[in-house]
Amino acid sequence: MSVVAEPEPEVEPESQAQLEARFQAVIGRKDRIEPRDWMPEAYRRTLVRQVAQHAHSEIIGMQPEGSWVGRAPSLRRKAILLAKVQDEAGHGLYLYSATETLGVSRQELTEMLISGKQKYSSIFNYPTLSYADMGTIGWLVDGAAICNQVPLCRTSFGPYGRAMIRICKEESFHQRQGYELLMTMMRGTDEQRAMVQESVDRFWWPSLMMFGPPDDASPNTAQSMAWGVKTHTNDELRQRFVDMTVPQAKALGVTLPDPELVWNEQRGAHDFGQPDWDEFWDVVKGNGPCNAQRVAHRKRAWDDGAWVREAALAFANSENGETSATSATSKSNESNQSNETGTA
């Protein structure tokens, strides 16, 4: 059920209050808010921020894995990895589309990404240093992402929730592929086993950071939960992730690099140590090992592609009988001097 949208400025204060009450009632029933429904401006802003950040994470996340496609050590793994990175581009597409229903275009969002106005998941500011990372990213990073994302399948905004159902299915597939790569490597040579352990050591703590700061340092959580945008706190999801991962690590034969990690019989859950939150904030602020590189890569690809997007628009307009094809292009004369992509 949903209420009919009306332009916000024409709404009288009384009916504004009514709209808000009806909106909150939809949330209370755990129904979906749809793009044409009235919604508080702050709800819209929160969703744009969250969905865009998610979309950007998919697109930036293509880089650390994409850089290993050319070096994949078997043709089967090359196919798996390339198909996975391709799926991430697809996830970015669904999510940008969901954001467009909130009135912000893909171009605007991309520009906010490359200008640093919008963020993406900090995990992608860590480097990929061996092929084992392709497995570890699948197992731990995609695993953490799934813990974060599965509850979002029931998030209050319809297009986001529906996109998440599809995305979660594919993420789950990726996670299994990643785990299977690690399992295969663990059955290989000593060098391969060492490579897996080193990779897990490097990604464990950043994976825990993916759930965000501890609840007492997460200012947006309460409002997001009241709106049904978020359904679990950061610490709840982090606990769930640790409890799921420990038996998987054991089956794999790797050690998780946390001396405080222990099963707590009383709680029915694992106790575990805290990541270095100073490092977390440092990376969030832009000082991670790869922040500058990731954004520069995205900016270069976007700028280098400007002439192609302009050509497509001009061609479409000429096919539609319009004479001034350039009138529709809103940006980027600067692109003409950009480098050619892909030359060795």
Binding site: G70, L75, R76, Q86, A89, G90, Y96, A301, G305
Partner: peptide, 28 residues
């Protein structure tokens, strides 16, 4: 596959990966 994450837009990134994957399948 070198185009992966470098294409002019997401649709072309996906399409070029598709072609690369088809050819990789033929090669195998």
């Amino acid at each position: 596959a070198e185009w992966c994450s470098n294409a002019p837009d997401l649709e072309e990134d996906i399409a070029l990966s598709n072609i690369a994957l088809d050819l990789l399948g033929q090669a195998r």
